[in-house]
């Protein structure tokens, strides 16, 4: 069932009540707290949207069905999840007086938009912004700017909290039309830009490190940097799998022992 809920009419943008927005926003920060292997963020999502249901008069049968709608497998990107949460609240409101069968459509909407946001968010945050920010704080660390590391992360924290707040309202305004948002070409532009920034910053970290070890006279430093880089690129190729960073440390120790023997 796919009820006609698109809103392209010139009516003023819908606004979520401030109290509900605060409540949803605060809860959205812990969307992943109950992450589990079976259904991932399902419990977190249901917990997230409960403030909306709590504002209604108790109705056991409706509450039961509401819980059922949100208890299936669910996974999305936590930073972009609020677009979907806002949209879901809007759909719940729009479908509140419709037959129960129509409400099942919410599950389909949740799954498809959730998956699309997960994919965009993984590319933008985990593979784009995260390495970029990590390299930026490492660059600051190499310069000995300890407090600037905390400032950079503070700026990121405030920005992502603001994004989550705005996304909630935007998702609510758009409702079903969030789908249009997913096709916005700017997502891919930002993904490409953040990845490129990460690449340049990685090069900057290498450049600064090389200059520092050359200046401070840590004699084997330069050679070790290149050997380490070669090992980092080569190990996944040789082993045909990516090792977690923790496993790289003992691997590097074995290499260090071999180098000590060789020297």
């Amino acid at each position: 069932m796919n009820p006609d809920l698109t809103r392209k009419s010139p009516e003023p943008a819908a606004r979520m009540s401030r109290g509900l927005q605060w409540s949803l926003w605060l809860r959205s920060l812990s969307l992943q707290a109950s992450w589990n292997h079976q259904r991932m963020q399902n419990l977190g999502l249901l917990w997230n949207v409960l403030p909306w249901l709590r504002r209604k008069k108790r109705h056991i049968n409706r509450d039961r069905l509401f819980c059922r709608r949100y208890y299936g497998f669910f996974n999305t990107n936590p930073y972009l999840a609020n677009f979907l949460i806002g949209g879901l609240i809007r759909l719940e409101e729009d479908l509140a007086d419709r037959p129960a069968a129509e409400s099942e459509f919410i599950g389909t909407f949740r799954d498809s938009v959730g998956r699309a946001l997960a994919s965009l968010g993984d590319q933008l945050f985990w593979l784009g912004l995260r390495p970029t920010l990590i390299m930026l704080i490492c660059f600051s660390g190499l310069l000995g700017q300890v407090s600037s590391i905390l400032i950079i992360l503070g700026i990121f924290t405030v920005s992502q909290l603001v994004l989550r707040w705005l996304a909630l309202q935007r998702g609510y305004e758009l409702g079903m039309d969030i789908v249009d948002l997913l096709f916005d070409k700017r997502w891919h532009l930002w993904i490409a830009r953040t990845k490129r920034a990460g690449m340049v910053l990685s090069g900057m970290v290498i450049g600064l490190y090389l200059a520092q070890v050359a200046d401070t006279g840590v004699s084997p430093g330069r050679g070790m940097l290149w050997i380490g880089t070669g090992l980092g690129i080569g190990l996944p190729v040789i082993l045909r799998k990516r090792l977690p960073g923790e496993a790289m440390i003992p691997a590097a120790l074995i290499l260090a022992l071999l180098l000590t023997f060789a020297i």
Partner: peptide, 13 residues
Amino acid sequence: LLLPGLGVGTLID
């Protein structure tokens, strides 16, 4: 001394 290169190598990968 090996670890910074190793990390950057992982990112290049």
